[in-house]
Amino acid sequence: MEMFLKVTDTFRSLKETRLSSLRPLSEFFDYQRISRPADLNQATSRISYNTRYFSGNYLIIVALFAVYSILTDLRLLFSLIFLVGGFTLINKFAPEATQVGEHTITQKHLYTGLFVIGIPMLWWAGPIAAIFGIFFGSALLVLAHAALLEPGVESDYATVQDQV
């Protein structure tokens, strides 16, 4: 239960900090502001500004890449469901030791069995390829969007506010 509270607190703080800065889709997909940067310096300054300005939108893109990656790889999906579901079921239905014949089965035994089966299943599913796919796919999309989208007029005033 305590772990669940920590996870919900983490999501709540993430929502308050990152997702509160979500920009409207009309601004995020403003095709009239798309142009090729003149040089590497301009591309770098656009990336620097846009990654801060659209950080909430980019976080959602990374999350969508992760969900897509998990849903399209059935082995990974099944192994994650097995591990998370097993962990949840053990916590919910087996908090106390159970006597089966002459043997006493504790939560520790159940967790050991779950991990002996679940970790090789997860390894066989290839989560490292999924992680690299999520990382490089989202990085490519975020950097391309940030480099090609011209900052709005408000970016000129952002430097004035920093100096004051």
Score class of each variant (00 low, 15 high):
59 L>T: 14
30 D>E: 11
164 V>D: 07
147 A>R: 00
116 V>Q: 08
132 F>K: 09
67 V>A: 12
14 L>R: 04
98 T>Q: 09
147 A>L: 01
138 S>C: 05
65 F>K: 06
37 P>G: 08
78 F>L: 12
65 F>Y: 14
19 L>H: 04
143 L>S: 13
113 G>Y: 11
155 S>K: 04
91 N>K: 08
23 R>M: 10
142 V>H: 01
122 L>F: 15
133 G>P: 11
132 F>A: 08
79 S>W: 05
81 I>E: 08
69 S>M: 12
60 I>T: 11
36 R>N: 07
94 A>Y: 14
146 A>N: 11
62 V>S: 09
36 R>E: 04
162 D>V: 04
136 F>E: 04
70 I>D: 03
7 V>L: 07
155 S>G: 07
69 S>P: 04
19 L>S: 00
112 T>M: 00
45 S>Q: 12
1 M>E: 13
94 A>K: 03
65 F>R: 06
98 T>D: 01
2 E>Y: 12
121 M>E: 02
14 L>D: 10
15 K>N: 11
5 L>K: 14
97 A>L: 02
131 I>A: 15
120 P>C: 05
146 A>T: 10
159 T>V: 09
113 G>A: 14
112 T>I: 07
54 F>V: 05
157 Y>M: 06
3 M>A: 13
101 G>K: 04
74 L>H: 13
67 V>Y: 13
8 T>L: 09
38 A>N: 07
13 S>T: 12
113 G>N: 09
22 L>N: 06
148 L>T: 01
123 W>A: 14
93 F>I: 04
117 I>V: 15
52 R>T: 12
131 I>G: 03
163 Q>D: 07
126 G>Q: 05
16 E>M: 11
8 T>R: 06
131 I>Q: 08
27 E>I: 03
7 V>K: 13
66 A>S: 15
90 I>F: 07
44 T>C: 08
81 I>C: 11
68 Y>P: 01
81 I>Q: 02
137 G>R: 09
142 V>D: 00
157 Y>Q: 12
100 V>P: 05
158 A>E: 14
33 R>L: 14
85 G>N: 06
122 L>S: 12
15 K>T: 10
128 I>R: 04
22 L>E: 04
150 E>Y: 07
19 L>N: 05
66 A>Q: 06
120 P>H: 04
116 V>N: 01
25 L>C: 10
134 I>V: 15
99 Q>H: 13
85 G>L: 00
104 T>M: 07
136 F>D: 11
157 Y>S: 11
88 T>P: 03
126 G>T: 06
116 V>R: 12
69 S>Y: 02
32 Q>T: 15
5 L>H: 08
